[in-house]
Design a protein around this nucleic acid. Structure first.
Lengths: 221, 221
DNA sequence: TAAAATTAGAGACTAAAGTTCCTAAAAAAT
DNA sequence: ATTTTTTAGGAACTTTAGTCTCTAATTTTA
């Protein structure tokens, strides 16, 4: 009772207790710290204690909010992608399926090359190498904005009569996500640059989608 | 010197030292044990000590041969797939691309439904949930026999003049592996049955590949 | 067949994820 | 303003992957 280790009587309160953050503010700070760490260090090299220390908090605080290291890192990354998705504001509507897709790819390219995101491929390949398949599929590959957006493009194209979806299987909406994922993971290139994305769109995806276009009559060029 | 814990003088040697296995024999036993374990328990619940104990050996023996838990489990699974790949003996050559693909899918179906492999999807989705993307891509998705075989089918088809590969991108050889992987991981179904595989081949892959067929003249049905 | 080189097996050790329990701030309720 | 509820933060603890070292069995070499 007499000497509680916390009552170092007289020592300026600045160094002892700095106004505890809680709720959203604390959470935002933690994710921000995590993001900073993942920009500098690869996933495997980051420890939960590091994240906690970096955010001036404690491991138990982290586990109260997220279930695993993968969860917290993915959550941190998602703040960024949803941020940028919001910036993209309205869904592309150029009047043609290919135009819409190209705008989406432009945007991905911007996302990847913009200052903040140059490392995102490195991130995915090197730093997120330890993230499990299950996590990846659950949280990124399916039901993500990418596949959603592609689906919307096709719906618009269908309304315009540009495309015939009679024999178009649902699975084909996920193709861009799958092929991009493949490109991110299965290559040794350090960067996925603009030309690489162009290649994927022009030579892989469009050839797949083109046969579903109803260019004038029955068969395309 | 007098009482070395190992010299329990007189105790039948059967219980003390049972002829140490080494080399290939030991390795085969370990992989076999691992396979047995993964059939019963999910990946995350298996420990290296369990594997070692199960194979009546020691953890250090495991790490002498494989670099990680993922490695040893993948190695164990691969013994099975390469086993079956060997049984498949010659590459399908039915005279048509679709026929060849269908035979490959038949074979995958057999693999998945045969006694030994009913659990392989559960394995992939539940028990291998902890395997990293990187490991997966490096060791399964790319440069695997599946993509290789698809490539061969297309080469044969090209030789027959059945298909025109001028604008066919390399990435499309990997499509079956990617789509199957997606099906394995991103669904909540317990089984990938025959009809599911049929659907993937008929409604997803064939529509993608068909436009490259040179059925008679320039454009197909 | 004895000596030398390998390699299995036992077990201690390290590091980091994830858990638990406790104390003390901060916020909400009275 | 005081009590109650919630939640942050500290720290010890458990588990398991992965490392390291030592001893003894097996194989190879001479």
């Amino acid at each position: 009772m007499a000497n509680n280790p916390h009552n170092q009587q007289g020592v300026s309160k600045a160094s002892t207790t700095q106004h505890r953050r809680r709720g959203k503010k604390l959470e935002a700070d933690i994710l921000d710290s995590t993001l900073n760490l993942i920009k500098q260090t690869k996933y495997e090299a980051i420890t939960m204690d590091m994240i906690a220390k970096h955010a001036h908090t404690n491991k138990s605080v982290l586990y109260r909010r997220w279930n695993s290291k993968a969860d917290i890192v993915l959550a941190a990354l998602r703040t960024q992608t949803t941020d940028l998705a919001a910036k993209m504001k309205q869904i592309p509507n150029t009047g043609s399926l290919e135009g819409d897709l190209r705008e989406l790819f432009d945007w991905i390219s911007t996302l990847l090359t913009s200052m903040h995101y140059t490392n995102i491929i490195g991130l995915m390949r090197e730093r997120l190498g330890g993230i499990s398949m299950r996590d990846y599929f659950d949280k990124f590959a399916r039901n993500n904005f990418l596949s959603q957006m592609v689906r919307t493009f096709f719906e618009h194209a269908s309304e315009r009569g540009e495309v015939d979806l009679t024999h178009f299987d649902e699975a084909l909406y996920d193709l861009p996500a799958l092929v991009l994922m493949d490109a991110f993971y299965a290559t040794d290139d350090t960067t996925i640059d603009r030309s690489r994305l162009d290649h994927i769109l022009s030579d892989v995806l469009m050839p797949v989608y083109r046969p579903f276009l109803t260019t004038g009559n029955g068969d395309a060029k």
